[in-house]
């Protein structure tokens, strides 16, 4: 058994990371800490997941959220999608494996991947509304969030959701409050089969190797770890039985990256735009300095008087 996270203490503790460990801060520049904290990661082993939704339940309880009571629409996903009050969601896919003709019920826990190169943070216009700690956690700071929804567009995994109540963006925090006191995320603690485990990223990769080997021994030749390089790797990773086809797991992106459109918008457009506007203003200014004002002359007035006089006379 992977060593479980110990019970929390109720004695006040200093948080193990904070402002000083910021690696990125949205719409701001920060000086990254000289020494990066050990990277943490959550590993979700889809092949061990029984889809029990304990992670969802623990997430709701720990984060004191109140997802709405929906209705049954013929599916097992409840709520039907991630919401500002549901940071993680089991997504169920009934997949008939064409190689074996066996039904496989693929159940993937969806939620924030805590990308090393977070698209949400890149897209965010509000200084300090999204932060990335040097341990890899990408967190939303609601006091700074303006609710514009740019993070939604920036995210390659379609994760953030904007609350209609307080108009700020919500997503999994990786339970930063628990990790700050040496705990694991609530979902990882609850997960009955340890399909979710939490530790340092290195530990998780090593643990995943063992899991992949076990899956290969059971005939899943394409088993592998999902730690997509397109976003610099993630701090939430999956073990998949069919790592060659992540899209069969309810549309897990194959080779995700920040959209080039977002890159263009937040990259060249931002600078070129300022330049264009600046050039326009400066050109005007220089033109005025060089040419001076364009004034109506006395002759012009007289010409006008002549013209109107002609007519009125």
């Amino acid at each position: 058994m992977f060593p479980p996270v110990l019970n929390p203490t109720t004695v006040p503790q200093e948080p193990k990371f904070g402002e000083r460990d910021l690696m990125r801060r949205s719409a701001s520049t920060v000086t990254p800490p000289a020494q990066r904290q050990t990277e943490v990661a959550k590993l979700i082993d889809v092949s061990k997941c029984i889809g029990c939704k304990a992670c969802q339940s623990a997430c709701i309880e720990w984060n004191d959220t109140h997802p709405q009571l929906e209705s049954n629409t013929g599916i097992y996903e409840n709520p039907h999608d991630l919401t500002p009050d549901m940071f993680t969601l089991m997504r169920f896919t009934e997949w008939e494996n064409p190689d074996t003709n066996n039904l496989e019920w693929l159940i993937r826990k969806d939620g924030c991947m805590h990308c090393e190169d977070p698209g949400c943070l890149k897209a965010c216009p509000a200084p300090g509304a999204i932060v990335q700690y040097s341990n890899g956690i990408v967190d939303f700071v609601h006091e700074n969030c303006i609710g514009c929804g740019y993070c939604v567009k920036g995210c390659p995994f379609n994760i953030p959701r904007i609350s209609e109540v307080d108009h700020t963006a919500y997503k999994c925090t990786l339970c930063s409050d628990r990790i700050a006191v040496g705990q694991g995320p609530a979902c990882a603690k609850a997960c009955p089969t340890q399909a979710i485990v939490f530790g340092t990223k290195e530990e998780m990769k090593k643990h995943a190797e063992g899991r992949v080997a076990d899956l290969k021994s059971r005939g899943f030749d394409s088993a592998g770890l999902y730690d997509p390089p397109g976003v610099g790797g993630t701090h939430v990773m999956y073990v998949l039985h069919h790592a060659d086809k992540p899209e069969i797991y309810a549309g897990l992106p194959n080779n995700p990256a920040i959209s080039p459109i977002v890159e263009a918008w937040k990259g060249v457009t931002k600078y070129a735009g300022l330049a264009v506007m600046g050039v326009a203003a400066v050109t005007g200014f220089l033109h005025y300095m060089v040419n001076g004002p364009n004034r109506v002359s006395e002759e012009d007035e007289e010409a006008a008087q002549r013209l109107t006089g002609d007519r009125s006379s």
Partner: peptide, 12 residues
């Protein structure tokens, strides 16, 4: 329980 009602809200 509110949470469990949310996770599977309706008879089917």
């Amino acid at each position: 329980c509110r949470t469990n009602a949310v996770l599977q809200p309706e008879f089917f």
